[in-house]
Design a protein around this nucleic acid. Structure first.
Lengths: 256, 256
DNA sequence: CGTCCGTTTGAGGATCATCAATGTCCGTGG
DNA sequence: CCACGGACATTGATGATCCTCAAACGGACG
């Protein structure tokens, strides 16, 4: 029997059973705005109050404690979710016992829209999360009635596709150090990264990073040490990073 | 119209300048139908004749010879394309000179919808291709007027996202043999694979496969030899493969 | 029939996974 | 406030796998 690589398992999946009560600040928090770059290029990218109200009407707000499972791969994909607070991870459990994280999700992210009849990924809360659950039938009806809203969703999936392709590029690198550097660079650009200026918040564990980068957690650790020893990055505690030598860091990131 | 044969590199970027004449069989070929599995689960997934007519009205049919470049990363993303014949590859040229293929595209695939203001990938014809070019402004107008059509596009991107995630899973494997096996398994399931029954058509080169799998082309070659020596797969010429030992092959594929 | 491009094969070196043990952070409770 | 415990992270040693460089081979096509 080999040592379990992922000790902390989540609570049972019926987190929605007891949380149908609507919160007062429900509607205003509902956003699926694309990241800044897109907003600038197209000011129509933001949801109107009306659209938020519409989504609020058909959605259920829920809080997920750290480690809670939002849904599991293989279960019927009957709802999508808008993440309004916290960080989550979408991953696939593989036959060999390994797991592969295919996306980290953060505020304003859309979850579960790209699934088929059943979820092909599992989604688990990395930190405490607030999500809005929208049943698929209600969603399709709303999207049919509001083409502009549907267009927001379309843009949003397109954005997720670009993210997935970026992960493919990052993972394509052979050196662990370069992969970690690109990962940090990605987090730094992430609008959800709300640390002190100049700091990168690492909400996930090294094991999660490893599962995202396709490395062993030891390799991630060694890559971190390499970045520190080279004077490129400074790590504070487990969850904070700061770029010390911007020029060399960017050179490493771009040397794909 | 005489078309010069382009050796390995693509023709100038204005391939659409001379091809505004509509072909007679233009409209019926226009399809963005999802693969079989989705169609079965939801019969509404097919485009109506009306929708095809609408798309035909705003699209321009073009043929691309083998090796032609449809668009290049960095150029303004002012149009999307529906691929109706042939195989293409979407790739990113990296600073180190390597290239990474992020998707192989085949008939009914939607190309360029997930791009931002400028294309982040280049797309090149692997075989002779027929594509329909749709300018973005016209497309968004049409999608706004027909929510059901827009929903088809949404589903289509969602499908591409799942494909990208599958590529992440495949690439996550450490052994070249297993990666190649999963790649063959993927091609086998592909509805575009129109070889003799039991045969898998490999329209792309080993180098392309390597760039997709994140391996060197030598590693792909050796993985192929491994599959042959083990009696799992038979290769005929460069472009045909056949599964000989189904059970062991599937066992290898699923041993992720 | 010869050339060219793509493919195969070989040898050596670099990098990461794995196994195993130690070290550190952080929340919990006294 | 401090000590404790457990999860998380680091470090070390070894072996397997793939990349790189280099050369020979093969089929497609003129």
């Amino acid at each position: 029997m080999s040592r379990p690589r992922h000790p902390a398992e989540g609570p049972p999946a019926d987190v929605f059973a007891r949380s149908s009560a609507r919160e007062p600040d429900d509607r205003p928090l509902l956003r699926i705005d694309p990241p800044n770059a897109d907003v600038r290029s197209d000011p129509l990218q933001t949801l109107t109050d009306e659209q938020r109200a519409t989504l609020g009407r058909i959605s259920t707000r829920t809080e997920l404690p750290r480690g809670a499972i939002l849904y599991e791969q293989g279960s019927p994909a009957d709802a999508v979710f808008i993440l309004t607070e916290g960080t989550a991870k979408a991953f696939r459990q593989l036959a060999t016992g390994k797991r592969r994280i295919v996306a980290f999700l953060c505020a304003t992210d859309l979850i579960g829209l790209a699934e088929g009849a059943v979820y092909v990924n599992s989604v688990q809360a990395v930190t405490r999360c607030v999500v809005h659950r929208i049943p698929v039938p209600e969603l399709t009806a709303v999207l049919h009635d509001d083409p502009r809203l549907q267009y927001q969703f379309l843009r949003r999936i397109a954005h997720e596709l670009r993210d997935a392709q970026r992960q493919i590029i990052i993972t394509g690198r052979r050196d662990a150090t370069g992969r970690l550097a690109m990962f940090l660079s990605m987090l730094e650009r992430d609008p959800c990264n709300v640390g002190k200026p100049g700091e990168i918040a690492l909400t996930m564990t090294r094991s999660d990073i490893a599962d995202y980068l396709g490395l062993s957690l030891e390799a991630v650790s060694r890559a971190g040490r390499e970045l520190r020893d080279s004077g490129l990055v400074e790590f504070t505690g487990r969850s904070r990073a700061r770029i010390l030598d911007r020029e060399r860091f960017e050179r490493l990131v771009n040397d794909v």
